[in-house]
């Protein structure tokens, strides 16, 4: 465990806490894509199946349980408890366009052709594009609340910090995993446009509004 990975994990955790607090305090999930949240829940459930078979560390186990539980909780809050506030008219991205290609890619490019490994690979590919429905929703409405922007910034930073972790591990331990590195680059690149708007607008106290 190095500092980049720890910061990445904490940033990821912070993103989830910010999102949960936003929904809970405002009693509303307006501006949040339920499609992206469903994809994230699928990502964590398929990736952390190894909770049952492999013990890595208490930290690892704790975080996995937190990510699975909170992703399911968010989907529950959006589709059941605060369903009336869910912005389904704008959340129209077709998730099968992400689910099917990532599944096919996982079947073709993986470390080992076993069910657990293919699901793990699928989760890595799916995670890299899971934010697209959310970005699509922001582009459709043309704006995002600042709390939603903070959530997206923390969520986007997490894989960016993991990229630094992989560079560090490559030089320090000669460890690398091309599947996660390429997917992590794709994932981080998808946030670049948002990062630019966040730094130039939200951090200066303005609302994130897309140019008309």
């Amino acid at each position: 465990m190095n500092v980049f990975r720890l910061l990445g994990d904490l940033s990821h955790l912070l993103a989830i806490i910010v999102l949960l607090l936003k929904i809970w305090k405002t009693r509303s999930c307006a501006g949040i894509s339920g499609k992206s949240q469903i994809l994230f829940a699928i990502v964590y459930i398929t990736r952390y199946l190894d909770l049952i078979t492999t013990y890595i560390s208490a930290y690892n186990m704790f975080m996995k349980i937190i990510f699975i539980a909170t992703s399911i909780a968010i989907v529950y809050l959006m589709y059941v408890k605060f369903k009336a506030t869910y912005d389904h008219n704008h959340d129209t991205f077709r998730i099968e366009f992400l689910l099917l290609p990532t599944l096919v890619l996982a079947l073709l490019i993986n470390h080992e052709f076993t069910i657990v490994e293919i699901l793990w690979t699928f989760s890595i590919y799916l995670e890299s594009v899971a934010i697209l429905p959310q970005l699509f929703l922001v582009s459709k409405t043309g704006e995002a609340e600042s709390i939603t922007s903070h959530y997206l910034f923390a969520l986007g930073s997490y894989r960016g910090l993991y990229l630094l972790n992989w560079i560090y591990r490559y030089y320090g331990e000669n460890y690398y995993d091309l599947i996660v590195i390429v997917a992590g680059i794709v994932q981080t690149v998808l946030y670049c446009d948002f990062f630019y708007l966040y730094i130039t607008k939200v951090l200066k106290g303005k609302k994130l509004q897309l140019p008309a």
Binding site: D9, H12, K64, H111, T114, W120, N165, Y175, D177, V180
Partner: peptide, 10 residues
């Protein structure tokens, strides 16, 4: 290259 089914990262 890591072993399959032993992913230590989140």
């Amino acid at each position: 290259v890591p072993d399959a089914e032993e992913h230590d990262e989140l």
